[in-house]
């Protein structure tokens, strides 16, 4: 493995090929916030809270620290005014969905994000995809997946698989940055509906039907 020299927040860092900016920063004790990142899972780059500024041929560029590979001579800034402003807005947007998430609230404090800035859409899900990816990549069960796209994107359990696999597993619950609320809520909804009906309406996802009972979390 060849060594790669780069600079993060003014510190000279020696990294090895294949490392991301996030890995390199961690190695010298610089912390970059993440929400969708997980050591055991393939890199995803969805939440963008790890956004940092890099300089490429003199031009500043915003990239996701959790996936951007280290390059020789790269100059990285993890806390510029711009980066902080962006993280603040992203947090405010996510808090509209999951206002009570401890993880989000802690980050909000750090970046001065206002929990109530945007109108609430309490779906709890911030689309980090940890449950979906963990179930597919580690458990290889594919009991939960994404449905739809754009602002209608949701997670949804496949009732037939969930009925068999989920009650004894639930390993995705503690991964959820919104305190497992989303996974539990949606799973319960899926299992309350007979499989035939679960797919009769629209996207087939039961999370937005509003009829799911309040189940205990995790």
């Amino acid at each position: 493995m060849s060594e790669i020299n780069l600079q993060i927040d003014g510190k000279e860092v020696v990294a090895t090929e294949g490392m991301t900016i996030l890995d390199a920063a961690k190695s010298v004790g610089i912390s970059i916030p993440t929400l969708c990142h997980h050591e055991k899972l393939e890199p995803y780059g969805g939440c963008r809270i790890c956004t940092v500024e890099v300089e490429v041929r003199g031009w500043p560029k915003l990239v996701a620290g959790c996936i951007y590979p280290v390059e020789k001579g790269l100059v990285v800034r993890t806390r510029t005014e711009k980066v902080d402003k962006i993280r603040k807005v992203l947090l405010e947007e996510m808090l509209a969905h999951a206002p009570d998430s401890e993880e989000l609230k802690a980050l909000a404090q750090e970046y001065g994000a206002d929990r109530d800035r945007f109108e609430k859409h309490p779906s709890f899900c911030i689309h980090c995809g940890l449950c979906v990816r963990y179930c597919a990549e580690i458990k290889k069960k594919n009991a939960v997946g994404f449905v739809d796209r754009g602002s209608n994107r949701e997670i949804s359990f496949i009732p037939e698989i969930a009925a068999k696999e989920c009650w004894d597993c639930k390993e995705c619950f503690p991964l959820c940055p919104t305190s497992a609320l989303q996974a539990a809520y949606v799973l319960a909804g899926a299992l309350m509906t007979p499989p035939e009906e679960a797919h009769s309406g629209g996207c087939g996802c039961s999370c937005s039907c509003g009829s799911a009972p309040e189940k205990q979390a995790g």
């Binding site: 780059g45 939440c47 807005v89 992203l90 947007e93 509209a96 796209r149 754009g150 209608n152 994107r153």
Partner: peptide, 15 residues
Amino acid sequence: KDESCGKCTPCREGI
């Protein structure tokens, strides 16, 4: 709003 893939926060939520 309908055509974004919805994967990343800035695009999905920003829109």
